[in-house]
C-alpha cells in the first residue's frame, strides 16, 4: 500500500543504449582537468607535509605559538558558526515565510559577503571599529572594548565572510517544503514557537547541518580579512592561516606545509562528511 511522495518524480531513464566514444572523451577531459587542478596539487601538500616523516608535524604541534593560533582559530570559528546559524535560520524563515517591503533587496544583500574581497571586508571593519579613526572604534575602546587588533575583530571578520552559507542551504528547503505543514500546525492550535520547535526545525534539520559544516570549513580558513583586522600579533591574534603564511615567508617550509596540511585535512573532511550524508538528488525526499 505504500506509495511514493505526492510529487510525481519522472522515472529515471538510464540511457545505456548509446555508449558513444564522446562519452569517454568527455570523462577523460573532466578527469584530467580536475586531476591537474585539484587532486594532484592537494595530494602534494600531504606529501610535502610528511616529506620528513612526522618531524614537521610534531614540530608545529609542539610549538606553543602555533598551538595558540590553532586554538584561537577553532574558538573563533565555533563562535562564528553559532552566531551565523542563529542569524541564518532566523533570516531564512523571515525571507521565506513573511512578506515585507525591501525583502527582495535584503535577500540579494545577504549574498553580498560571498562576492566581496576579504581585504575589503577587513578594511570595512577597520573603518568602523578601528580604535584610532573608526566610526565607533574610539568610543568602544574608551568603554574598554577593543575590536580591531583583538579577538572580537577576528570574530566579526569571520562571521562576515561565512554569513550567507547557512541561509543558502536552509532557504531552498523551506521553499520546497512549503508552508502547509506549518499552517496545519496552526489550525491545530500550535503557537509560533511550538510550530517552530516541532515542525519547522525538524524539517530544516539537515539543511542546517550542511550549512553548519560548510560555515565551519569557511570560518577555519579565512585569511585575508583576518590579516587586516588582527594586526597579526604573535601569540595573541595570529590565526592558523596566518601561521602558514608566516612560516613560509620565513623559510620554514616544513612548518608551513604541516600547518597547511592540518587545515586542508579539516576542510576536506568537512566536505566529505556533507557529501556522504547528503542524499543523492534523484532520490532525495524531504527528511
Amino acid at each position: 500500500m505504500a506509495e511514493a511522495a505526492t510529487v510525481a518524480r519522472r522515472p529515471r531513464r538510464r540511457g545505456r543504449a548509446r555508449r558513444a566514444p564522446s562519452r569517454y572523451v568527455l570523462r577523460a577531459i573532466v578527469a584530467a582537468y580536475l586531476l591537474l587542478l585539484v587532486a594532484w596539487p592537494v595530494s602534494l601538500v600531504a606529501k610535502n607535509a610528511f616529506a620528513d616523516g612526522l618531524t614537521d608535524l610534531r614540530a608545529i604541534l609542539e610549538d606553543p605559538d602555533v598551538m595558540h593560533a590553532l586554538g584561537l582559530t577553532v574558538r573563533v570559528a565555533v563562535v562564528a558558526v553559532v552566531v551565523n546559524t542563529v542569524f541564518g535560520v532566523g533570516m531564512s524563515i523571515l525571507l521565506v515565510r513573511y512578506e515585507f517591503p525591501g525583502k527582495r533587496l535584503l535577500s540579494a544583500l545577504v549574498d553580498l559577503p560571498l562576492s566581496v574581497s576579504p581585504i575589503v571586508v577587513g578594511l570595512a571593519l577597520v573603518l568602523v571599529y578601528g580604535g584610532r579613526d573608526g566610526w565607533f572604534g574610539p568610543a568602544l575602546e574608551d568603554a574598554g572594548f577593543q575590536v580591531i587588533f583583538a579577538t572580537p575583530g577576528i570574530v566579526l571578520a569571520t562571521v562576515f565572510v561565512a554569513l550567507p552559507l547557512v541561509i543558502r542551504e536552509v532557504v531552498p528547503v523551506l521553499e520546497e517544503v512549503g508552508v502547509e505543514q506549518e499552517q496545519a500546525a496552526h489550525s491545530l492550535g500550535a503557537g509560533a514557537l511550538a510550530t517552530f520547535r516541532r515542525i519547522t526545525l525538524p524539517t530544516i534539520r539537515w539543511a542546517v547541518v550542511y550549512g553548519v559544516v560548510l560555515s565551519l570549513a569557511r570560518s577555519l580558513g579565512e585569511f585575508g580579512a583576518v590579516k587586516v583586522v588582527s594586526g597579526n600579533v604573535l601569540g595573541q591574534t595570529r590565526t592558523a592561516t596566518l601561521v602558514v603564511e608566516e612560516k613560509y615567508l620565513n623559510f620554514d617550509k616544513g612548518g608551513a606545509y604541516a600547518t597547511a596540511f592540518l587545515l586542508a585535512l579539516v576542510s576536506v573532511a568537512c566536505i566529505t562528511v556533507v557529501s556522504i550524508i547528503r542524499p543523492r538528488t534523484s532520490e532525495e525526499t524531504t527528511p
Binding site: A184, R198, P287
Partner: peptide, 12 residues
C-alpha cells in the same frame, strides 16, 4: 479543523 488538499502531513 482544517484538512488540506495535499494532506500537509507532518512528514517527520
Amino acid at each position: 479543523g482544517f484538512v488540506f488538499q495535499h494532506y500537509a502531513a507532518f512528514k517527520h
